[in-house]
Design a protein around this nucleic acid. Structure first.
Length: 490
RNA sequence: CGGGGCGUAGCUUAGCCCGGUAGAGCGCCUGCUUCGGGAGCAGGAGGUCGGAGGUUCAAAUCCUCUCGCCCCGACCA
């Protein structure tokens, strides 16, 4: 109900809560084309901060940005067998242009491996041309049947990294390095702790040797795959003749990796941190970190308080304690005709991490009244040294949000031995991340999916595994080959 | 593509069964009074009732067709 003052609660209907929150906090809106969406400034502002943080990390590890075109010859997709199979059903095809039927249809990229490795093949002759470490920020199109705002839309924004290496070991190292970058971004910027691990064959990217992913737990205990990193082996190099001459003079195929994160992460942010009052944005990703609400009664007071609020904003934004380019991001809400309380609710809905209320009483005390979005805690803060106090508080909020999310995930994870019967009950009910043994048989994986809708999210990396974990397969009782995480997922 | 809902003002909708001048709440505009947790009063703007056809003196309402959207399942970041 768009004009009810309260959101549908998470407990009442998680899915409805999510939709209302996204629409009402103005992160996004439905577009006239079914399954596609408009990302509004509130949402795009978060994406821009995500981009900046990730882009810095890619650059710091030697990657360069480039841009490859949206249209790809249809024949390219068909060159790598498993890749076609994986993507064919969801590819949009352009058959006409300039009023004429095209000789060869063009596909709208669902991902750019084919065009990129085609071009790499043109650019690489020698081992001296390697590695190539490239990234692009782009939109891609996948014709999904079932769509959700941010989580699955026909078109979405992402970055896709593509690299080419001399050796398999180097490609594997790159794949894992990026997985680590994704993980630290999600942990430290999104305050969304993730489990990293390797995908099973059935969940592997079409055309990859190995796929690794970051898996986050949403508040309905379902998993969200938030980022993937693939070791492509020589599959694409062989399909696109990406060869080079080695130091010893022989010809060899390059080893490739590809990796991506998308605007889907914004959906993850919502479902990790949102509450029944709206969004909660971790400070490092918040386009606005602090909103100042001046409070007045008379017109005279209004002028005085607005002026004081602007002065306070200047005090905060002039501060260079976080570095000259990383200023506090502050907004003053001086709108007239709206009561302070109404403003509080609105900024809470929009997820701004910190609110400063500034009225005559505060001014007398040379203080502001501060309210945290995450915990709702309130306290008076002295103007003296306020920028540093605020910055410290924001860091505290960031850390607390991450820890709260991590604690919630662990509280909803099952690491004790579990019977398959009990597992079915859990998946039919509240859901969980279930750490269990698996005999590595794809048929068992398929059967569990069929019977419970849960899938193996990943074979978790060492540090996430349950120590002295299960040694037998949850379903068959046979010796386990892997410890895996089962969960329902988005 | 199957199943289920729904299209009436920017949003949420009443009216439809039983045809007879299209209503409300919220939002928006103007003014006054308000303003430390979702303001009050007064005035005002805004609708070819998703579209096409039909029945009828008369259609939001009945009939036929059509388009679109949302939700639930099979595929996926």
């Amino acid at each position: 109900m768009a004009d009810d003052k309260k959101l549908t609660t998470r407990a009442a209907d998680f899915s409805e809560w999510y939709n209302e929150l996204v629409l009402r906090s103005q992160l996004a809106d439905y577009s006239p084309v079914k399954g596609s969406m408009v990302i509004r400034p509130n949402g795009y502002g978060i994406w821009e901060r995500m981009q900046r943080a990730l882009d810095d990390m890619f650059k710091a590890t030697g990657h360069q940005n480039a841009y490859f075109p949206l249209f790809i010859p249809e024949s390219f997709l068909k060159k790598e067998a498993s890749h076609v199979e994986g993507f064919a059903p969801e590819v949009a095809v352009v058959t006409h242009g300039g009023g004429k039927k095209l000789e060869e249809p063009l596909i709208v990229r669902p991902t750019s491996e084919t065009i990129i490795y085609h071009m790499f093949a043109k650019w690489v002759q020698s081992y001296r041309d390697l590695p190539i470490l490239m990234n692009q920020w782009a939109n891609v199109v996948r014709w999904e049947m079932r769509t959700r705002l941010f989580l699955r839309t026909l078109e979405f924004l992402w970055q896709e990294g593509h690299t080419a290496h001399v050796t398999e070991a180097e490609a594997e190292e790159e794949t894992l390095k990026i997985l680590g970058i994704y993980r630290s971004f999600m942990d430290d910027w999104m305050a969304m702790p993730v489990v990293t691990g390797r995908k099973t064959d059935s969940e592997r990217f079409a055309g990859a040797l190995r796929t690794y992913s970051c898996e986050a737990m949403m508040q309905d205990n379902k998993a969200l795959q938030a980022g993937t990193s693939h070791n492509l082996g020589q599959n694409f190099a062989k399909a696109f003749d990406l060869t080079f001459q080695t130091e010893s003079g022989e010809m060899a195929h390059a080893w490739n990796t590809s990796w991506g994160v998308s605007t889907r992460m914004i959906g993850g942010l919502v479902m990790t941190h949102g509450d029944d009052n709206g969004l909660r944005i971790p400070p490092r990703l918040a386009p606005i970190e602090i909103v100042i609400v001046p409070i007045w009664k008379s017109d005279e007071e209004r002028g005085r308080m607005t002026e004081a609020a602007m002065a306070l904003k200047a005090q905060l934004t002039d501060w260079t304690g976080r570095g000259a380019t990383d200023r506090l991001r502050v907004h003053v809400d001086a709108r007239d005709g709206m009561k302070p309380g109404a403003k509080y609710y609105e900024w809470e809905l929009r997820g701004v991490p910190l609110r400063f209320e500034l009225g005559p009483k505060d001014l007398e005390k040379t203080a502001v009244f501060a309210a945290r979005r995450d915990t709702k805690e309130k306290q008076s803060l002295a103007m003296e040294g306020l920028p540093a106090t605020a910055a410290a508080l924001l860091e505290r909020i960031q850390a607390d949000m991450k820890e709260a999310a991590r604690a919630r995930r662990e509280a909803n994870s099952i690491r004790e031995p579990i019977s398959y019967d009990r597992f079915k009950e859990v998946m039919a009910g509240e859901g969980a991340f279930v750490y269990a043994g698996w005999n590595a048989d794809p048929a068992i994986e398929a059967r569990v999916k069929e019977e419970t809708k849960a899938t193996i999210r990943c074979i978790p990396d060492e540090e996430f595994r349950t120590p002295n974990g299960p040694t037998t397969c949850m379903v068959t009782g046979e010796p386990a080959k892997h410890q895996v995480i089962w969960a329902k997922s988005y």
